[in-house]
Structures are given as C-alpha cells and as structure tokens.
Amino acid sequence: MMPSTATAPATRVVVPAPKRRRRRANPTAAILLILLAVLMLAPFIWTALSVTKPTDVAFANPPVLSGYTPTLEAFKNLWETTYFAEYLVNTAVVAVISTVVALVLGIPAAYALSRFPGYVSAILLLLALVFRSLPRFAVVLPMYDISRALGIYDTNFALAAALVAINQPFSIWLLRNFFAEIPKELDEAAMIDGCTRWGTLRRIMIPLMRPGILTAGVFVFLFAFQEYLTALVLTDTASKTVPVFITTQLGQTLPMLQQAGAAAMLLTLPVIAISFIAQKYLVAGLSDGSVKG
C-alpha cells in the first residue's frame, strides 16, 4: 500500500475461501491466538468489572472477584449527574463531520495524485508523509493561539477543522493506493464517452472504490473518535469530548472514578461493534489497496 518501496508483481490475487484454510488450521496456534486475544481484551474486561462492582469493593486491594452483586450504579450516576451525553455528542459530531469532510476533500486529491505522474505527485505524497509524522503539539499549540484570537476556541467547528487537517494525509495516502489499483484505461474509456474528469470520478471511480473509501473512512473516524491531545488543547467547557473528560477524572474520589470507567466503557462499546463488523472489510479493503504499491 505504500507508494514507495513495494516491488510486488502487479497480479491481482483473489482472497482464498476460508474453507481451504480451515483444513490446515493448526490447533496449537489456534490456542495460542485465543490466549492472546483474551490477553488483549484483559484491560477492557478488568475495567468493565471494576465499574460494575459496588463502590466499596470496586478498587479493593487485593481485588474482590466474587461475592458481590454487580450494579450499574456508576452508569446511572454518570448519565444523571454529569454532562456525559453532551460530551458524547461532541465526540461523535466532531468525528462524523471531520470524517466526511476529510473524505470529500481527500478523494479528489488522492485520485489526482494517482493519475498525475511525476515529481509533483511524489513531492506532494512525501509532504503528506511528513505531515503525518509531525509532532502534534507543533501544530496544535499555534492552533490554540489562533483559535483564541479568532474567537472559535472551544467550538466543535475548530476541533473538527483541526482533525480534518491532521487526518488528511493518512486518508489521502490510503485512497491514493486504492485509486492506483484501478486501471487508467477505465478513465479514458469514460472520458471518450463524454464524461469530464469530475464525472469520471463521481460516476465510475467512486462506485468502484467503495471498499477503499469505507476502509479509509473507518480509519479516519476511529482516529477522530479517539483523539485526545488535539481535543485537550482546543476545547474547554463547550465542546469537551469524552476522552478529555475521562482524563480530568483520574484524580477523583471513588464514585466519580467509577463513573470515569463507565464513561470509558460507553465510549468504547460502539467502536468495538464497529471493529467487529468492519474487520472483514478492512482486511479485504486493505489487501486490495496494499498488495501493489
């Protein structure tokens, strides 16, 4: 998927049907992988346990593992006594808007980069690489200063705009590789039929690119949904997001600490659902784009 070093032959490989693989599944490997998966889930499971225990045993040392009645009190308190709903809406709105805008801007740019050969494209891709690697503070602190001067500090708009810019390089990169997969002859045929470039992109390319766009969209959405640093610096009371809220609760006393854990659970459940649903498409989508450089 890298524009750079890939030397793989440009043959399209069909993903083999799972049936053939199952025949050879290695039981030791399977058991190891199940163990690994459980280990990977451990922090999540542990937090889920902690927030559903009654407060007096939630963080007891040594941990209390049984003999208590699970409770959803922390969730109830979170919902009733804090502005959690508002933080969640902020987080979701910013993630959705920034994803849509990043794709709307990124798709044509990625398409152009895949069709315009030579130095200009290479330099622009290189720039995208450099932008992706920038230390976040190098752009976010000036954004803080500028947004305060412009009076847009602590708005969903400012945060979404920042995230569009920050996530743009990654989405362009990913999309550019998907476009590179589509033979140029297809564009030419479409243009002979009277399509403009924009028409070609809209009528031919985008429908063909659906798995690629979905993949890029899922990634950008996840990045935006998770973003902590940018939100920490650019928001305060009006557009606070859930990750920022959770970190301001780490030094709280018991019931509120449990609420923070509950907030973490509620923030995570939707993305876990997404990851379970999307993983199949992600592998397929990524392999379409990535096999050839």
Partner: peptide, 26 residues
C-alpha cells in the same frame, strides 16, 4: 450555571489557561 466535574490538577491547569488571555472560558 454550568459546572463540569474535574479533578484538582485539572482545575490548576484550567485556571492558568483561562486567565491567560483577553477572554476566558470560566
């Protein structure tokens, strides 16, 4: 009146930030 729950170190950081410009959040 709006009050977001926050821990002590959060208050310290926010105090500096909100007092540092011509306008503040609090």
């Amino acid at each position: 009146l709006k009050h977001d729950p926050i821990d002590f170190s959060g208050q310290v950081t926010k105090t500096t930030a909100t007092l540092s410009g011509d306008t503040g959040s609090y």
